[in-house]
């Protein structure tokens, strides 16, 4: 090596420092990717990060609160009227639903099948929608202290939103169905056609890949979760088919759908404990 002056020694030190940090990062990434060993560390760090998230969420919350406070009396009254009407409609529907439930239980008993149990749910507030490149991850204000577990389904009042990815003591992170890493087994409510819904990274679009032109699926169809993957309970709306394109050059249909859940709107979600069909069924 040419004369080791102070300058080149400094340069070397810089490169060594870079190498150190690169190796450190890659080691961390590989460990984090390969094994769940870092999960405890991460959930600990998330507890520390919680106040940060609360503070960061504050301006938006204050803005929304003041917007609500300033809402005009007239619009409040109108809203109230609409909600009352909706309440009445929903009540009527619930009554009918109850009758159907009873009938269903009766029929299931006749068939010897176990009854479907209603899912337990807890409401959670979205604290942050992280915007790391390409991923759709939200932070919720419920954690292990509330009994939240990894892979727990997250829904809103319109449909399936995603599943819990990581849990720390007082908060958890959920990955949305629009994340490119997510795929959900579904079935077409109209035809029973089985399919898979995949996220695209876009906020209000998902894809339905791998369906051949012979598949029975049309624009407007509602896709509900089929429960086949074992993660999501069956019967929740997932997406509504928007377009079905059949190009003769390709083996599969190009189908895009819109998530049923209101992914961008609202700050309240539900975490559910699906029970599905209990294994003690098939009474003799």
């Amino acid at each position: 090596m040419p004369g080791f002056g102070a300058y080149s020694r400094k340069k070397l030190a810089r490169w060594l420092q870079l190498a150190f940090y690169v190796v450190l990062s890659i080691t961390l990434m590989v460990t984090n990717y390969r094994s769940p060993r870092l999960r405890a560390l991460r959930s600990g760090l998330n507890v520390i990060a919680l106040p940060l998230r609360f503070i960061a969420a504050f301006p938006e919350e204050a803005f929304q609160d003041s917007a609500r406070y300033l809402e005009l009396n007239a619009s409040l009254q109108r809203n109230n009227r609409i909600l009352r009407a909706q309440d009445l409609r929903l009540r009527a529907r619930v009554e009918r639903y109850r009758a159907l439930e009873a009938e269903n239980a009766h029929l299931r008993k006749l068939l010897g099948a176990a009854p479907r149990v209603a899912d337990r749910a807890v409401a959670a507030t979205i604290l942050a929608n992280g915007s790391a490149p390409f991923s759709r991850i939200i932070t919720l204000n419920r954690g292990a202290a509330d009994g939240i577990y990894v892979r727990q389904p997250v829904i809103d009042d319109h449909g399936l939103m995603g599943q819990v990815l990581e849990v720390s003591r007082y908060s958890s992170q959920a990955i949305l169905i629009t994340d490119p890493n997510q795929a959900i087994p579904v079935e077409d409510l109209r035809s029973g056609q089985r399919a898979i819904v995949m996220g695209t990274g876009a906020a209000n679009r998902v894809n339905v890949p791998y369906l051949t032109p012979s598949a029975d699926i049309r624009p407007g169809d509602l896709l509900i979760s089929s429960g086949l993957g074992g993660v999501f309970p069956p019967g929740y709306p997932v997406a509504r088919v928007m377009t079905v394109r059949n190009s003769p050059n390709e083996a599969f249909l190009k189908i895009s759908a819109r998530p049923a859940a209101h992914i961008n709107r609202g700050r309240q979600v539900l975490l559910i404990w699906p029970k599905g069909v209990s294994t003690t069924g098939a009474r003799r």
Binding site: T31, G130, S135
Partner: peptide, 14 residues
């Protein structure tokens, strides 16, 4: 940022 974004630990750090 990795902790806050929920990305793989070390990604943003790198």
């Amino acid at each position: 940022m990795d902790v806050l974004y929920g990305t793989l630990l070390g990604e943003q750090a790198l």
